[in-house]
Design a protein around this nucleic acid. Structure first.
Length: 805
RNA sequence: GGGCGGUUAGCUCAGCUGGUAGAGCGCCUGCUUUACACGCAGGUGGCCGGGGGUUCGAGUCCCUCACCGCCCACCA
């Protein structure tokens, strides 16, 4: 065995070996109970970031634990085509060659994306392997696989047949560069210096005016109303009258709406439903028209001929000049505010009205709400469960169409009269008028539309496959908090709708890893950390351990300290294995554990196994890492290994046999978290080390932490040591100290320590006496609490007596 | 503005159903020759954010205030 542990070499070797041996392979005909994880497919163009690393560390630990418990585990990897994200990456690559997708055309562009993916896509799977993720890599799935595309289109057809889909004009976040609608999550918000203009709209009947404020004077051309707050006394008598929009000189109503913020500007809002989300809502509520003056490329359309084709700045200047000439420009002032921009290209978002496909949520969400309310599907932690229910209850209709090229093109064809025909493949004729002239809808589906099918489309749905029958529903899913509404809830309702069952029972919402200074990790802030750095520096095992240790709370600061601790743990394990293995020679006879420390460590390992099962069952990784750390350092290395060292040197057969068995068990418990180092050590153990023990539990079983009777026996032993002048401390269940007293009598305390111990016991006795003397305590506290206190007092007194205090 | 979470040792954080505080790192002291200095033994260090309440008893439950953060929605 190497003197020093070198994670890099060991990890690379085992990752290769495991996969070559097919250890991760899942088989539908394997009769053992299944354990299935629906793991978030990363973007196909993505690279490993801390979110992935954390998800992998947690999921892979659970998966390995169950695999060791003889489950038929399915841990399936895959990629998401990530529509806008991928398209943007490829477009940027094209730009470097001086090309745009519009020059290429749709078909050629799609071919470029595929080509790009063949060349550069998929690096993240290599990085998953470096984390030691035990996925069945042969089963890699992609949301653009032929089979998957079929599932997506089938989903659309299904929703259409159920009457859930409709088309409607809605205001969308429009990126003028990508010429596409963006979801709210594809936006960044940046502080921007603008100008705020106060402009007078003359009243149509008679004198006077009403002054509005705007930063986008060009959109004045599309105004259809002026709105004020219904409780705003300043304008109360103006409501119901009309104002004249400058430049276009159109008469528009003055209306009252609660969405107007009276405090802002003059308290009067120009209503532009075509170019502002709030205005759109107001417009809909008041039945206003929805004209638009800005085109998809951000320039002015020809609705107002004077500005046709101009930029918004130019058009705005013309409008302002017009107002100024007529004395309508009341004020212009610097104004700093946040502006939504495209997160890919930083273009300023243009709210535009666009004809979109929508999915009604009212009926679809009910079954999902039912399984959440009944906790058939549970989010962890519970606060996220409540959040998931709340956000599903309030889920608005789902905009499922996107105006980009990379993705699943809508399975909708239009005849010249505009009748839509929905079919999973190209129909021969319009379903409504029979026309054979059909043109496919150019839009593609929202990326999350296909993601919603992930747990079952990856198993072959819509076909009734052996995989689907065997591995659905799954066990758990793990993801980040902000994905709940986008993905989790949608997987649940689509699983119920299409397959008739929940996709998984548990959803683990892991902590958000913040930068060391407590801010969010982001590339733009320069606060991001590449998980490959700690993997290179400390090893994958250490990184897995460190990430789990810090994964308990909602937000957690990244810390190398936790990973450093993981490295220490791996090294410690390595060294204690060296101690045992270096002193093991030849074939050993099967032996019984003989001495107290041997039975003690086996008991500890047994208890630890139960503790881990409990902690992992509750997805409490903070507790599981703490258990493993203390088991290894304190119990196994500091006490047990130190105690048996002399007998190992003497080649004591029983000591060696037990040590090997105990080591093997320790490795098994650590393996789910630190697979590489444990596997490396395990591979060097003599065959079937655990079989060296005939019976780990002799009749005179001593299980300190589990068995109160055993504690009594240890107490007796301790009394004997005391009589021979050895000081021991019997805390209520401080087994390590008992153990120390029993097996290491040479560590007797000095007289000074003894004085301190007497002092401590006196304080304890005084405290217990005080509590028991308190009549209200005795009367009101639960009887077992009082009894426990009496017991403690008894014990402290006897220990004090034994010390001569 | 809405939702959620945090505030415990110098730092990063544990503290399960209430019984007067723990870990790792750091720091201090002492230990280097048959696993490990990437180590061992021991030690220093905390009015558990402020205030109020419930209780015999509150880091733990309730209310409130103050900061900090995350997510979502955002003022034309």
């Amino acid at each position: 065995m190497e003197t020093r542990y070198d994670p890099g070499a060991v990890e690379a070797r085992w990752q290769e070996a495991w996969e070559a041996e097919g250890l991760y392979a899942a088989h539908a005909d394997d009769p053992r109970e299944t354990y299935v994880v629906a793991f978030p497919p990363p973007n196909v163009t993505g690279e490993l970031h801390l979110g992935h690393a954390l998800q992998l560390a947690l999921a892979d630990t659970l998966v390995r634990w169950r695999r060791m418990q003889d489950y038929n585990v399915l841990f399936q990897p895959g990629y998401d085509h990530a529509g806008i994200s991928t398209q943007s990456v490829v477009e940027k690559a094209l730009e470097r060659d001086g090309l745009s997708r519009h020059e290429l055309g749709r078909a050629a562009f799609e071919e470029r994306v595929w080509e790009w993916l063949r060349l550069y896509g998929g690096t993240i799977m290599t990085q998953f392997r470096r984390m030691g993720a035990s996925m069945d890599y042969r089963r890699e799935r992609f949301t653009m696989d032929d089979a998957y595309v079929r599932a997506v289109l089938q989903f659309f057809v299904h929703l259409w047949n159920k009457g859930y889909l409709y088309r409607d004009n809605r205001i969308v976040n429009w990126c003028p560069y990508h010429e596409s609608a963006l979801s709210d999550l594809e936006l960044d918000h940046v502080d921007t210096d603008d100008e705020l203009f106060s402009i007078r709209y003359p009243l149509a009947d008679g004198d006077g005016h009403i002054t509005i404020a705007t930063v986008r004077p060009a959109t004045i051309l599309a105004d259809v109303a002026v709105a004020v707050h219904p409780d705003d006394d300043r304008y109360r008598d103006l409501v119901g009258r009309e104002a004249v929009v400058p430049f276009v000189e159109r008469r528009v109503p003055i209306i009252a709406d609660e969405r107007v913020e009276p405090e802002f500007g003059t308290g009067a809002l120009k209503v532009t439903p075509g170019h502002d989300p709030v205005d759109f809502e107001i417009g809909r509520a008041h039945g206003l028209p929805e004209p638009m003056v800005v085109r998809g490329d951000g320039r002015m359309n020809d609705v107002v001929p004077e500005v046709a084709g101009r930029t918004q700045e130019e058009a705005g200047d013309l409008v302002l000049a017009w107002c100024e000439e007529r004395g309508l420009l009341e004020k212009r002032e610097p104004y700093r505010h946040t502006v939504a921009v495209c997160e890919r290209c930083a273009s300023r978002i243009e709210p535009l009205i666009s004809l979109q496909w929508w999915c009604r949520m009212d009926e679809l969400k009910e079954p999902a709400l039912a399984v959440l309310r009944s906790s058939d599907v549970r989010y962890h932690p519970p606060s996220q469960h409540r959040f998931a229910i709340g956000s599903l209850e309030n889920a608005p209709d789902w905009n499922i169409s996107r105006q980009i090229w990379w993705g699943h093109q809508l399975p909708v064809w239009y005849c010249p009269d505009g009748h839509p025909t929905v079919a999973p493949w190209e129909p021969d004729a319009c379903a409504e008028c029979g026309s054979g002239e059909l043109e496919r809808d150019p839009d593609v589906l929202d990326t999350w539309f296909s993601s919603a099918l992930w747990p079952f489309a990856t198993l072959g749905w819509p076909d009734d496959t052996p995989d689907l029958r065997r591995y659905y529903p799954g066990d758990f899913n793990i993801t980040a908090r902000e994905i709940i509404r986008l993905w989790e809830n949608r997987m649940i309702f689509s699983g119920l709708e299409l397959v008739g069952d929940i996709p998984f029972r548990d959803v683990i919402i892991h902590s958000t890893v913040l930068a060391v200074d407590g801010r969010r990790m982001s590339k733009s802030l320069g606060t991001g950390i590449d998980p490959l750095e700690p993997i290179d520096e400390y090893g994958a095992d250490a990184t897995r351990y460190g990430l789990q240790k810090i994964s308990s709370t909602q937000d957690v600061r990244f810390s190398y300290g936790a990973i450093e601790e993981g490295r220490k743990l791996a090294i410690k394990l390595w060294n204690v294995a060296r101690l045992i293995l270096q002193n093991t020679e030849g074939v050993l006879p099967a032996l019984e554990p003989r001495d107290l420390e041997e039975r003690w460590i086996l008991a500890r390992l047994d208890d630890a196994r139960a503790e881990l099962e409990d902690a992992w069952g509750r997805f409490d990784f903070s507790e599981s890492t703490a258990t493993l750390y203390h088991l290894t350092f304190d119990d196994f290395c500091d006490w047990y290994a130190e105690a048996i060292k002399p007998r190992l040197y003497d080649r004591d057969g029983a000591a060696i046999a037990t040590a090997l068995a105990a080591l093997e068990e320790l490795l098994a418990l650590l393996h789910p978290v630190m697979p590489h180092v444990t596997e490396e050590i395990w591979s060097q153990l003599p065959d079937r080390a655990s079989r060296l023990i005939v019976s780990p539990w002799p009749e005179e079983d001593v299980r300190f932490s589990a068995d109160a009777g055993a504690l009594d026996r240890v107490q007796e032993a301790a009394q004997i040591f005391r009589r021979s002048g050895v000081q021991v401390e019997l805390g209520s269940d401080d087994e390590r100290r008992i153990f120390a007293a029993v097996v290491r009598p040479e560590r007797a305390q000095s007289d000074g320590d003894r004085g301190a111990e007497i002092e401590r016991l006196r304080k304890e006795v005084a405290r217990a006496e005080g509590m028991l003397a308190n009549e209200r305590f005795v009367a009101n506290a639960p009887t077992d609490v009082v009894a426990a206190e009496r017991e403690k007092l008894e014990r402290y007194r006897s220990e004090l007596a034994a010390l001569g205090g």
